[in-house]
Amino acid sequence: MALYREQGIVLRTYKLGETDRILSLLTPGRGKVRAVAKGVRRPGSRFGGRLEPYSHVDLQLYEGRNLDIVAQAELITSFTAVREDFALSACAAVMVEAADRVAQEQERSTRLVLLVLDGLRALARHPEYPGVVLDAYLLRLASLAGYHPDLEACAGCGVPGRHRVFSIAAGGILCRACAPTGSRPLDAGVVALLAALAGRDWDALAVAAAEPRLRRAASALVNSFLTYHLGQPLRAWQLVPR
């Protein structure tokens, strides 16, 4: 069995037998990796609390036929603060669920790993509106996965401007000429907020999202956008306190 070393983020865990767990890991070099952590549920296991979801770890793994096996694990960042707060934990659950959908096995995923880490770090700073950080993460994830939402120019003809009709199927905002007849324009504040979520620095997001009405509208659009393009709704999204 070949040994290899990878850094990874624990996306999900599934119970296996009495004391083991199957981990779904996101690694830069090999994309999504499924591996077994033996005895991890036993108190006093050598892995201890290192392999909990959202943990960023340095791993040594054996290549297996179906599943790899975790030989050693060192913690890089535990993101304990995220796990211990309900709102942050719910946001992180959506983040890893979305990353799990997008990531592929045996496909380099450095940018995705960096994005997930950015998202988790932003949550760990206890933001004023964790839901806003989540929405920003989801828009960036959509861009990374090839569904970049056009928010600065018409998604149909490319005419620049903050147009106010948003079409999920077209993948962004549409100018008057491209918008289907009868479509209802959005509040200009929502379009501006979406653009800020997609592009602005993580720490500056709270300022852009101060108004609750705009936050809710933008959040609903982000969820619909992701549901449409990922093909399935994100299960954890419903439980994020807004």
Binding site: G49, E52, Y54, R83, E84, F86, S89, A93
Partner: peptide
């Protein structure tokens, strides 16, 4: 339990 689910539950109930 002191895992992700248990901590989220404890945080929710605590509040």
């Amino acid at each position: 339990n002191p895992n992700v689910e248990g901590e989220a539950t404890a945080s929710y109930l605590g509040r």
